[in-house]
Design a protein around this nucleic acid. Structure first.
Lengths: 335, 335
DNA sequence: TTGTAGGCGTTATCAT
DNA sequence: ATGATAACGCCTACAA
């Protein structure tokens, strides 16, 4: 026998296909308990699985979500994906994952792909703010979507975000409280909003204590280790700063490496604070003080938000709070 | 207007739906160039997208693959996923990713989910060897599948694997050549075949040079950092070995940490060789010597294999070769 | 070269 | 409480 259909089930159970369909869809009314059980038994026996194509054809639902992230190999994202996947599966959705590599080109292609696959919704971690043409495509296709991590735009779209300004503030405050007065910062790309948010929060904390952050102590990185490694050299050699705030953990690793090469001891000679608290950093020696975000939970929350949208409920963005995790890489400066 | 159908296109272009269908499916014969162009133009104009449900209903194909991995948060897997995804997408397939957490329970559930979603094929990184009930489910559902990384079983199923024995051998050989004679090994779980393969290859290399590997110098780990960290303590404190082969990079990180705590310098006092060459380790100081595998390419290859299966071609497993990457963590032992 | 019509497996709308 | 039947949108013999 090939695949069983409700027709087959109906025949075998001696009922109509309508009845089988009712059982399948848990319609409670309009059926005797006996009939229901009879049908269920047959379905059980043959391990019946309804054809999703046929179903989708009429219901217009695929029970599938799409997730677009920049790059799963970026250690920030696996946790986020897990959160999204676990929550999606608990709500009986499958998840199609796409990596955009932060290329508008690919974002578009995948948006198109997901539209073709007729996903019921999309969770989107965009390049930065949502590209206008992406936006148009999304609205034309009328696919519900939520943003995550990036692309915050208060009024326009709902999503799940981190309070990056606060994160930066926590980092700055922590270093100030330790007694640091000459502090450097390695930022993410200026073109990315969350990167600027972190810097601004950081500066605000310093300013509150009257500490200056001269441009020469701000280095623009790209969230990658390599560039942070190279660009931190000047800053470290001039010995002008006693502490550095790296706007993500991966760049903090780059600083670790350069410090080690230059014979600068962490934290004795130099304190470092990272951002994200990705799993990777448990391998660092000494352990990295960082600003933690609950990426996994953010992923779960994004799915909840999306499901609410599907149910036409009013949705508002969810803002997560970062927390400071003090470990070994930050301490008071030497006198 | 709601979604366009081929019927709408047909009307607008003044042809029959058959003709539209033909254009859609790139049937070359049986149509004048003019007609084709006319239809294409209309499709272009309205940005037509065929309904995959309707299509699948008749073709029985979803243009979707499923990928089951233990855990995307394990740093070995993101690269593998990327390989699978990139190759799948280039062949016009979407990818549903599932994390089994190495639980047979979840493997089953996801297998079921993928079956329900009617994926065209599955790429499976099983717990170890393929569970008999999984096997049964797979064959009952008649879903083509290939294994990847784990579950090698020469005769039974094809897949993409690494020559782990060779990898272990390379590690052993390298340390021997550096002059080490007292060497420790931290293995993966004994229950996992590839873990034993690595150990066996390693032992073979030592044996060739008449070097013993007493049981006291073999520690069974679980591929995680924590356990490797704790369990390596004894070995390191007794100062019995001048080198350690950790059967994956993550465990090597654990050893780094313990060595640091005990004031043991790497590589002066202790050489370390890892396995995998995961991206994470670029953060380690000193840089880790390791056995590299081309995980990304293995992912791509798995998709190729699967596609060949779909085309009913004869398929045989693909075996990848690991390579030794010498960095800073291994050197000759002190006299 | 082009068109007609039946069927794919469900759900949903009416009947009974 | 249960059943017959028309969609849903596409593909594919078979006709013309």
């Amino acid at each position: 026998m090939k695949r069983w259909t409700i027709k087959d089930i109906a025949k075998k159970a001696g009922v109509s296909i309508t009845t089988v369909s009712r059982v399948l869809n848990h319609k409670e009314e309009g059926m005797s308990q006996k009939t229901r059980e009879k049908v269920l038994k047959v379905m059980e026996e043959v391990d019946f699985q309804p054809n999703q194509f046929a179903r989708g054809l009429v219901t217009k639902r695929s029970k599938t979500f799409g997730l677009i992230v920049p790059n799963i190999s970026n250690p920030y994202f696996p946790e986020l994906c897990r959160g999204v996947e676990d929550e999606a599966n608990e709500s009986e959705y499958s998840l199609i994952i796409c990596n955009s590599d932060d290329q508008t080109e690919k974002e578009k292609r995948y948006l198109r792909l997901l539209e073709e696959q007729q996903v019921d919704g999309i969770i989107f971690s965009a390049k930065d703010s949502l590209d206008p043409s992406d936006e148009e495509q999304l609205s034309r296709a009328k696919i519900p979507f939520v943003l995550i991590d990036r692309g915050k735009n208060e009024k326009k779209h709902s999503g799940v975000f981190l309070d990056n300004d606060k994160g930066g503030y926590l980092a700055g405050k922590h270093l100030i409280e330790l007694g640091h007065r000459r502090i450097g910062c390695i930022t993410g790309p200026k073109s990315i909003a969350l990167s600027n948010d972190r810097l601004e929060g950081f500066q605000r904390a310093l300013l509150e204590s009257g500490v200056e952050l001269p441009p020469s102590q701000i280095i623009e990185g790209n969230f990658q280790m390599e560039m942070a490694y190279h660009k931190s050299k000047d800053l470290l050699m001039k010995k002008e700063v006693t502490a550095i705030f790296a706007c993500n953990d991966v760049m903090a690793c780059g600083v670790y490496r350069m410090a080690h090469e230059l014979g600068i001891n962490i934290p004795t000679d130099l304190s470092i604070v990272g951002f994200d608290d990705i799993p990777l950093i448990s391998a660092l020696i000494p352990k990295l003080t960082t600003i933690r975000q609950d990426t996994y939970q953010m992923g779960r929350e994004a799915v909840n938000l999306l499901i609410q949208k599907l149910e036409n409920k009013d949705t508002t963005s969810v803002m997560f709070n970062p927390t400071l995790v003090v470990r070994e890489s930050s301490t008071s400066p030497k006198l």
